[in-house]
Amino acid sequence: MHDDARRGAGRPDDETRPLLFAPPETPADPEPAVAAALSVIQRSLAAMSSAATRPLLDPPTQPFRLRPVAGTGVAVFPVVLDTRLLGGLPDRTGAHRVLDAYAAIGGNALVVDDAPDGVAAQTVGTWLAARRRRDSTVLLGRVGSGGLAAPQLAAAVERLLRRLGTDRLDLLVLAGEPAGTSFEETLTAGAGLVEQERAGHLVAGPIGASRLIRARVLAGQRDLPRLAGLATPYSLLRRDAHEGETAAVVHAQQLALLPTAPLAGGFLAGEAPTRSALRRLRELHPERAQRMQPLVNRRGLKVLDAVVAVAAEREVPPSAVALAWLLTRPHVAAPVVAAASVEQVWSAGAAASVHLSRAEAAALERASA
């Protein structure tokens, strides 16, 4: 039997009918307040059903679909490319090859940092100009390393735009810590950049539920633009920080989630599955090995084994499976992956065509519990 047929045969978990939550029965003549509450519950259940099952049960009709960033009019490839590693490549030609590979698989969204040296941003800028791809590329500018006070934020955006050779960022990611700066000042400064059309929409960096709520309150009180999304660490190995209160607020505010560090520094790509492999990695990349060291434990290896098992069954790289799991999670627009080689781009980009069954997703979740 053909591999595809064998994998698809007899799988009840590939059911294509959507899961429906039965709404509570409505009394014949309820009190107005009760009727309003029941209406809210019914809408919430319908939204939960759609968000929870569509990524798993609605097979794509093409290799990938662009995924909308809620409320922005922007749609991105299922894997967003973080360009921060491109500045460390030996030459610009090699960096352009990585960007070409990403574009070749359908990639259209790049994260660019306001780094002190600006090499990666300039590299992206020359590539956009040489390939004439600015209009077809979603640019996410990540700022805040130098602070999030109004003057610092404005200077960072202007510097980044100059290096990229463009006049507008599609999404502005406020990723720094507002030390010594009020959150209101940061949001107000971001609103000014949106008003000046230097940025399209604002995305929060890794902040918690209380600050997301505060941002929505300030938006209402000060007539500021609402946050469009949240860029925060999230992976099979790092679930607790997001799946608690923060997930509830993301759902309530209908924010687009852009998971960062989705491969746990390369661990979920199988780069250091054993202690001996970690020792070899330490000789070549000591900083990366140091970040991975805490993951080489019972839980980490259990999660990696589950990822590798699904990857072997589907004949795709482990990184594609780890990213595909994130694409099944509610409100996830696309994980953000840093890559420094064509091979890494291909491996990560394969996630766009991996359609996990419920049984596979459940096995990964059990391993990472």
Rank of each mutant, 00 (worst) to 15 (best):
R17M: 14
L224F: 07
R67K: 13
L230S: 01
A261Y: 04
A289T: 01
A209E: 03
P225E: 03
G88H: 14
R198K: 15
V124D: 01
L89H: 14
R159I: 08
T72K: 11
T188F: 04
G88W: 13
R366M: 05
L218A: 10
Q196S: 14
A189E: 02
P30R: 12
A362R: 10
V342R: 11
L281I: 06
G190P: 11
A95Y: 12
R17W: 13
G205I: 00
A289Q: 06
L236I: 03
L153G: 12
V308M: 09
A33Q: 14
S368M: 06
T274P: 01
L218V: 04
F267A: 02
G146K: 11
S319I: 08
A130G: 12
A109K: 00
R54M: 04
F77D: 11
D223I: 01
T83V: 15
D29H: 14
D58I: 09
S276I: 02
H355Y: 03
A209T: 01
V112R: 11
R133V: 06
A46G: 09
A75N: 10
T166D: 08
G146Q: 09
A101T: 14
G144M: 11
D100K: 04
P273W: 03
A154K: 10
E313V: 09
V173D: 08
R291A: 02
A121K: 03
L164M: 11
A95K: 10
F77C: 13
R131Y: 09
E245T: 02
A348I: 00
S50M: 06
A149W: 08
A352Q: 05
P63K: 08
R67L: 15
L148N: 06
A5V: 15
Q62D: 06
Y234R: 05
H285D: 12
Q62T: 09
V345C: 09
A312K: 12
V119N: 10
I207N: 03
Y102I: 11
Q253I: 00
A252W: 05
D82S: 15
P27I: 10
P335L: 01
A309F: 02
P18G: 11
W325L: 11
L187R: 06
H331G: 03
H96S: 13
D167S: 15
G73Y: 08
T26G: 09
E287V: 11
E158H: 15
P273H: 01
A28H: 10
R291M: 04
L257W: 04
L20G: 09
G71S: 12
A247K: 00
G244V: 00
P335Y: 05
S182E: 08
P90F: 07
R291S: 00
R43G: 15
H355E: 08
I105D: 02
T137L: 00
A362C: 08
R7P: 14
D305Q: 06
E158Q: 14
A322L: 05
H201G: 13
P178M: 02
A348M: 05
A289R: 07
D117I: 08
Q122P: 05
V203A: 08
L174Y: 06
Q293Y: 07
